[in-house]
Amino acid sequence: MTKKILISLFVIGSVLPLSASLTYALLYSLGLTGLLSDGLTLANWIQIFTGEFFQSMIYSVWIAFSSAFFTITLAMTLLFIARKYLNRPNVYRSLFLPLTIPPIVLAFVIFQLYSGGGILSRVAWHLGLISDLNQFPALVQDPYGIGIILAHIFLVFPFFLLVLLNLFENEKLDELAAVASTLGADPKDIIFRIQVPILLKGIFPLLALYFIFFLGAFEIPLVLGQSSPHMITVLIIEKLQRFNLADIPVAYAMAVWYSVICIATISYLFTHFKKRYSL
């Protein structure tokens, strides 16, 4: 009896909100409900694959991919350069510092550091490298999303480094290196043929998960992103809060599409990657 109540609570607290919200958003996007609803239409769904919305999707994928790529590259590089050093208690502990900063605060800090009027620009001025703030390169609110990518890397690479350090121990990569060296492998072979492939295989589910998180980033692109194209989440909010009512169903279509991608990805990872690691 209690078990039935608890399962119901799970459904009400977890399954129902998402199903209900997705259903409403889908109906709205298909023109079946909402302020301007005119009957079933696929026009809104077609529109998310054209123009502004499609550009936003491409831009978001670029940001997510670059963030994931540079994060894992930096974490792997540091792992191999300084692994034994990183295992020292104080160094290990310091890797947790970025986890204490909320994304909106980090976005603000990055802006204050890297914008034209920011701290780095002022340092450059004092060093005589520039004579005007407009001469400072665009690192935030720029076309390539440099500021956004930097913020993502800052927030996430220490966590990846922690995971890689643990993975390195759990997969016994030191012992495998000894085995490989007695079989004739040189240090380069050991790193690139044995250790890196095993680490990448182990960390792939987490990397895929963070790709999705980067894709759905909101606070950081809100502060550090340019005016166009926006990332998906920022565009959705903008379209819902502006005056053009015709944009609303398209925004809902975008929201449903993005949610479906997230659900599909996590379902795939969940069913295909049984082996998980412990931290």
Binding site: E171, E175, L176, A178, V179, A180, P197
Partner: peptide, 11 residues
Amino acid sequence: YLYQEPLLFPH
């Protein structure tokens, strides 16, 4: 040198 554990390359 062969360990007690087979230590095969998992990938």
